[in-house]
């Protein structure tokens, strides 16, 4: 369906069509991650891409599971998901109340499952760089002060509200028109495990005690709050499923 929409998009103003299709067109640019990953300090290039306006819902993921029974929780091979996969749903093909309601973000999905979903609809997971780029562009567009951004994130880390998630896109879509990048659930990205690789002796896979300073360009709260997101993401395993981890898909422009 979305593949079709992307193809059709060529004949219409891109931004308008993307929005109707539930995606936002994000202009690329030169950009550097908000953590210090390289000694060289070269900036990276982000190409234009499209991103889902909101996170994938239980309802949408249920459609996917129905069409692809090999991703039912009772059929998905163990190599692709841990024991908690979709365990909050009342049944393998049934939604329910609260976090299992159709309009809530789907959680307890592994990286493998998230990728399979995006591939099925003609997309892919955003790269870590794309996701972080969108996050920063959104902050700029909304003129969120670093202190407010940090407070919101630290609040979410301590009290993620995982027992009672809001529906996706509860508020108005302002800024870039993207909902819930922060404050609802964290999102899978394609290369989630790639951070903190800074060489032979110092790369302990995920960083260790006291490693924070090497990766922060500034010691303010906002950079710490961002770093914790990188840190948490890189500590997941591809089979990990939790109540605070969902995803949205990205697409290449035609």
């Amino acid at each position: 369906m979305r593949t079709l929409l992307i193809t059709l998009m060529l004949s219409l103003p891109i931004a308008v069509f993307a929005e109707e299709a539930g995606m936002v067109y994000i202009d690329g640019g030169d950009w550097e991650l908000p953590i210090v990953r390289e000694d060289t300090g070269q900036s990276g290039r982000v190409e234009d891409f499209l991103l889902d306006v909101h996170q994938v819902t239980n309802a949408a993921f249920l459609d996917f599971v129905r069409a692809n029974p090999e991703w039912r929780r009772d059929q998905a091979p163990g190599i692709f998901r841990d024991a908690g996969y979709l365990s909050h749903w009342p049944s393998a093909e049934g939604l329910g109340e609260g976090n299992a309601a159709p309009d809530r973000p789907v959680t307890r999905v592994s990286w493998y499952a998230a990728r399979a979903y995006c591939r099925e609809i003609g997309g892919r997971l955003p790269s870590m760089t794309e996701w972080e780029y969108a996050s920063e562009r959104q902050r700029q567009a909304l003129e969120i002060a670093p202190q407010d951004y940090a407070s919101q994130l630290f609040s979410w880390y301590a009290n993620p509200g995982a027992g009672d998630l809001r529906p996706v896109a509860s508020g108005p879509a302002d800024g870039l028109g993207i909902h819930d990048l922060h404050g609802l659930v964290l999102e899978w990205v394609e290369d989630f495990q790639l951070i903190l690789g800074r060489g032979d002796d110092i790369d302990l896979l995920t960083g260790s005690c006291g490693d924070t300073a090497r990766f922060l360009p500034e010691f303010d709260e906002a950079h710490y709050a961002t770093f914790l997101r990188f840190q948490s993401r890189s500590n997941y395993q591809p089979v990990t499923t939790t109540s605070t981890l969902g995803f949205r898909c990205a697409y290449d422009p035609e």
């Binding site: 407070s151 630290f154 609040s155 979410w156 301590a158 009290n159 509200g161 010691f219 709260e221």
Partner: peptide
């Protein structure tokens, strides 16, 4: 004090 929920939360600035 947490601005978003009732109760308290970790204050990174104070910890630093």
């Amino acid at each position: 004090e947490d601005e978003y929920t009732e109760g308290y939360r970790y204050d990174h600035e104070a910890a630093m």
